[in-house]
Write a protein that binds this DNA or RNA. Structure first.
Lengths: 209, 209
DNA sequence: CCTAAAATAACCCAAACGGGCTATTGTAAC
DNA sequence: GTTACAATAGCCCGTTTGGGTTATTTTAGG
């Protein structure tokens, strides 16, 4: 069975070589290949798999993902990009990408990835998979960074992340609100933040509490 | 460069055929292959990659993972199992597995996975990768609960969780700080909170952002 | 025994915050 | 065409916050 492919990639040279490459295999057929999301969204035939760059002129690949999904939900979408930062990967995943492979990936692996998503799986370049898995493991290296927090400080930070006010914390711990404020100030200094909201964000994201 | 491999698998038939298979390739060498975690932990030479079953007689592969890590942190560990439920996958990932492949995977793919983790990446069978990615996409039931937030409000809440100050948000969005404050007030009302820190806590815990 | 660190508490002050209220504009729905 | 809502923006006012500084008591470690 032949897999039909759509390609959105602004770098025309890379795009053409990719088309040439994929088309040289009998089981794969590039139905359309375009340089912008806009062109792709306007009147393009549905395909089995879309290869989508992230860094694009008009609309980024991440923003485009839900748009393609809306137009044709059963189309599989694989990000094909040079971006290998956690931010991009996470955004793509949250947007519902079926795959995330890097441009430096060998042609065979790209074709393999296409087949994998076509068959209902997901495809991740090893380096991307590594980063995805890392998102699950609590970064205990960072725990060290903040082990500088004293038990009392940790306790108070915990209460802050529960949204309890300074005064209520004081009451709960049977100490003066002023003391709570002092602890909070020390926490700020150690965490390098300047407000409660920043502290909460950091605490929750880095799993200090 | 030859990759050394350790194998923990209680089903002796499958184990032996796997040893035979892997050893038939010059770049891979099975240094030891055993039927239980206990044997493997007692006096076994360090290898580059351990293939670890989950369903084992004495200690499960998941429980064994940190033990192997402790003995020899630089050893890569790939789960090789029939378990494809979310529970098992999530536990293995949290325990720090470098790969997760299913036993039905073709021999070539297994060898490929070994090489991928050996080279510092992570290896996931497409069906497993699919489940992992699915863990990120928020069960939209929750999204509905907070769909009361307008796009602008969501945007601002997102920026708040990044620890950005009101004034900086205003600058970033090219609107007046006062408008930002108004949006924030509306967010408070909808989320039933009374401060930025509470909003951040709620947003992060309930994955609104 | 003495020193270091932690926990406690107070003061000042400018800036920010939270809550309340009103108002205009644009857009989408009925 | 008017009703509804989102986004914009302003004002007031009292409270809280963040940043700076100082000081006492207790606990732990050398």
């Amino acid at each position: 069975m032949e897999i039909t492919i759509g390609l959105v990639e602004d770098h025309s040279e890379f795009r053409q070589s990719l088309v040439f490459l994929i088309s040289s295999f009998t089981d794969y057929q590039v139905v359309w290949s375009l340089g912008s999301v806009k062109e792709a969204l306007d009147n393009q035939d549905p395909v089995d798999v879309i290869l989508l760059d992230i860094n694009l002129p008009d609309i980024s690949g991440i923003e485009a993902l839900p748009l393609f999904r809306k137009k044709n939900p059963e189309q599989k979408i694989v990000m094909l990009t040079i971006q290998d930062d956690e931010e991009s990967i996470l955004n793509a995943i949250k947007a519902g990408a079926d795959g995330y492979i890097l441009k430096k990936t060998s042609p065979q692996k790209i074709l393999e990835a296409i087949r994998q998503v076509y068959e209902g799986g997901a495809a991740l370049t090893p380096m991307v998979a590594k980063q995805v898995l890392a998102m699950f493991t609590p970064p205990k290296a960072k725990a060290d960074t903040h082990s500088s927090l004293t038990p009392r400080e940790t306790e108070i930070l915990d209460l802050i992340t529960q949204g309890i006010t300074t005064v209520m914390i004081a009451e709960k711990l049977f100490i003066s609100p002023q003391t709570v404020r002092n602890h909070i100030k020390n926490i700020y200094e150690k965490l390098q933040v300047h407000s409660k909201s920043q502290a909460v964000a950091k605490a929750l994201k880095e799993r200090i509490v």
